[in-house]
Amino acid sequence: MRHLLTPQDFSVEELEDLFVLADDIENNSAKYSHICDGKKLATLFYEPSTRTRLSHETAMINLGGSVIGFPSGNVSSATKGESVADTIRVISCFADIAAIRHPKEGAAAVAAAYSSIPIINAGDGGHQHPTQTLLDMQTIRRLKGRLSDMTIGICGDLKFGRTVHSLVEAMSRYEGISFVFISPQELRMPDYVTDILHDRGIDYEEVTKLEDAIPKLDVLYMTRVQKERFFNEEDYIRLKDFYILDEKKLAAAKPDCYILHPLPRVNEIAPEVDNDPRAAYFLQVKYGVLVRMAVILTLLERN
């Protein structure tokens, strides 16, 4: 039985198989519309989410399966003090596969340790968010035609932004990748991520000004400063509008520098950028469902 806790749970070759499967699902959706008949996905969301939960649920429904679960920790037995380990042992009796989101780091790993069904980490605090990474990669792969040989800029909250930790770790396995990390000092990339880059001999630079980085990028990944990750409201207010991408800044970017964002967006991308052909953040949502369908099929071994 396999789980998806981090993108590293799949080799580069297995990821390519998964992306090819997602392509095939997109092109031949009828072939997959009943492949999970009778199967149930449990969505265990201890932390609210619109996109990720609905995307997982849509993915299972598109495959002919059904969905059970809870949309927030407030309506689960967690309010009675039930542990993640106990909850997942119970859910394993109801469902065939589970997607879990939890505000604490490592919660999905705990679920996997006690589960008898495959676990998808749908976000564990500021740690990992692998299905977001896979859909980010599929978006890059489809738009650029490759996952190698490019400079990826990542801008915003790099300290608590779980999507970027997963993305950097995953993309650093491809040839010819370099990174530019754009963040305020307080929100720099954590050392466990930069240690991996050191070990793999991957080039990266850290800057604070978006304008300095933008001309050299092939992909620009913007992130939101997440209020829920701060213990101190003052710090959040000071940092939340540190970066705002607008048309003026984007004018300095390459004509094929695509703009990605995990959404939800607040102020960090001006609405005027939405009409730019390089804006790819709503396309990511579409690829998200397709990639999650491919993940479910792969973990259920029905591909």
């Binding site: 542990s83 993640v84 505000p103 604490k104 780091e105 490592g106 705990v110």
Partner: peptide, 13 residues
């Protein structure tokens, strides 16, 4: 000792 780690709230782990 990471206050954001699951072990900070689930003490039996």
């Amino acid at each position: 000792t990471n206050p954001r780690c699951i072990t900070s709230i689930e003490h039996e782990l």
